[in-house]
Structures are given as structure tokens and as C-alpha cells.
Design a binder for these strands. Structure first.
Lengths: 140, 140
DNA sequence: AAAAAATATTTGTATATACAACAATAACTC
DNA sequence: GAGTTATTGTTGTATATACAAATATTTTTT
């Protein structure tokens, strides 16, 4: 059933969730080859771009709570993709050599994802949707 | 941090999730008085409007998977708000008297939610965002 | 300098959701 | 009509995420 045929079509609650889940699926597909979920992949990309970045900063940038970041980092540590060092109350997160080797693949996945997203929505609309989402994220 | 200041501002993955989570919060707040999560509340409203509706149909309308619907119904059954009857492979879900008494309150919460949503985004933009979300949900 | 407040991170616990496998029934085909 | 396929719903299990409380450290206040 297309969502537009549902009685709940005009409910922002289900719409927002449905859209998020569909994008999640698209992203999961794109990053499949890396054996990382999109969240883990983005966190890793962030750490690769800013080695030593702190969990709190990651939380801000990815719009997730600190506790979620801790959990994501734990999993990446298990996979030997990041390392934590703690001094005082601050923690720094660094990519391992293994992670650095993945840089190119991660970028490809990222492009695959954007490509799919743009393809499905159309060039103009995909940009417009992004704008809408950005405005919503800021205003809510 | 506003999401627009993040390096990942232009990533539909995080934007869509961030928007969904913010709307989730808004909705949770609106339905607080009922002791139901927004998903449970919507399911209950649907059952009140279409007594005897089948789980598969609920799944379609709320854009959730059948297994999730089963879990939501289980919880509503525990709270004595719905009842299931099974004949053959089909199941019907009915509201209990207790649920019927809640009808008015549920409607109030629903209006509270839309009100807040519209207030935060502005009248015109909130409608426009809905349109965007609907288009996205259908195209993705 | 001691006490209080603020900050950064982690841990314990709970929730919503999904997927895959299963079970039960109905429909179809030959 | 017996065997196969499709439909409907549930269960077992896994995941991402959040909140609240705990911990550890730094900063501020008095």
C-alpha cells in the first residue's frame, strides 16, 4: 500500500518515521559491503576525518545521544577500527590503520547512497527534500 | 548544536532520522497523559475507527511490519484496551469498552500534537513539509 | 582550600522496531 | 481430491537508540 492511500497519510508522525526507515534501508544497502551499519559507518568516517575527535563532539555532529555514541564506539573497537584514549574526563577517538585502509571503500558507499537517493527522488526534488528536512530539523 | 552547523548537515540519512526523532518526542509529549506511546495510541485510534480491523491491514496503514503490530497489540491487550479473536488464519482486533471511553482524550492528544507541530514550523511550512514527506514516502 | 557546581563519559535498563523462521490456514492446480 | 503454493499471523532473536543514574574529573564559588 502506498502511504498516500492510508488514512494516516496526513500524519507527520508516521510519515517522518516511514521516510526515516526507508532512507535507513537505502543506506543499509549501500554500506552492506562494509559490514557496518550506516551509523557505524558515519561515525567511522567522522573519526577518519577528525582523528582524536571526542565522543561529545561526535554526538553533536551525528545528532545522537552520548550514550549511543559510546555504544557505537564499543562496537567499532571490537572490530579494531577505532581506539580510545582517556585523559582526565576527556576521551579521544582515533582510527586504526585497518580503518584507514577502508577510507576509499567508505567513500564509495557514501556515493552509492547519495546516488540511489537522488535517483529515486529525482535531481531537483531530492535537493528540495533535503532543504525541507534541514529546515524541519532546525525548527523542531 | 543546530544540525545546520554540523558537517553532516547535508546527509539525508541523519537528517531524516533527526527529524523523525524530534517528531517522536513531540508526539510522546502530546500523548503523555494517556500512558501510551504514539504508536500504541495510533493503533488504538485505528481500531476504534475500524473495529475488527485485521493486523495485516493495520500494518499497511501504519507502515509498520506485521511482527511489530503483533507486539503493539500484545501490549494493548495487557492494558485491556483491545481484544483479538481468531478464526482460521484471520484475526480481528476490537476495542474494549475501556478503549471507547478514551476516544475523546485520544482525539485531544492528537490535536495537541498537530497544534504543536504547526506552531513550531509555521502554518504554511508545516503543510509544505507534510507534502514533502508524503512525496518522499511514496517515492522511496 | 574545601565545597559545590558543571562537564564528559559510561553503564544499567528499557523500548520500538525489524528480519527470519515458523505455524496455521486457505486457495489453486493438475 | 491430494499436493503445492500463497496468505496471515506469531515467535525467537537482534539492533539501534534513549533516558536516568553513576562515575570521574574539572571549574567555580565562597
Amino acid at each position: 500500500m502506498k502511504i498516500s492511500e492510508s488514512k494516516y497519510r496526513s500524519c507527520p508522525y508516521f510519515l517522518a518515521n516511514a521516510v526515516a526507515r526507508k532512507i535507513e534501508k537505502l543506506a543499509t544497502e549501500a554500506w552492506k559491503g562494509t559490514d557496518l551499519s550506516p551509523s557505524h559507518a558515519y561515525l567511522l568516517m567522522l573519526v577518519l576525518e577528525e582523528p582524536g575527535v571526542q565522543p561529545g563532539c561526535i554526538a553533536d555532529q551525528l545528532q545522537l545521544t552520548p550514550s549511543t555514541i559510546t555504544r557505537l564506539i564499543e562496537k567499532l573497537e571490537e572490530k579494531k577500527l577505532v581506539m580510545r584514549t582517556t585523559e582526565g574526563k576527556l576521551t579521544n577517538v582515533y582510527p586504526t590503520p585497518k580503518a584507514k585502509e577502508m577510507k576509499a571503500v567508505l567513500k564509495e558507499c557514501s556515493e552509492e547512497f547519495y546516488g540511489q537517493y537522488t535517483k529515486m527522488l529525482g535531481k531537483d526534488e531530492s535537493r528540495q527534500f533535503m532543504q525541507s528536512l534541514m529546515k524541519m530539523a532546525d525548527k523542531l
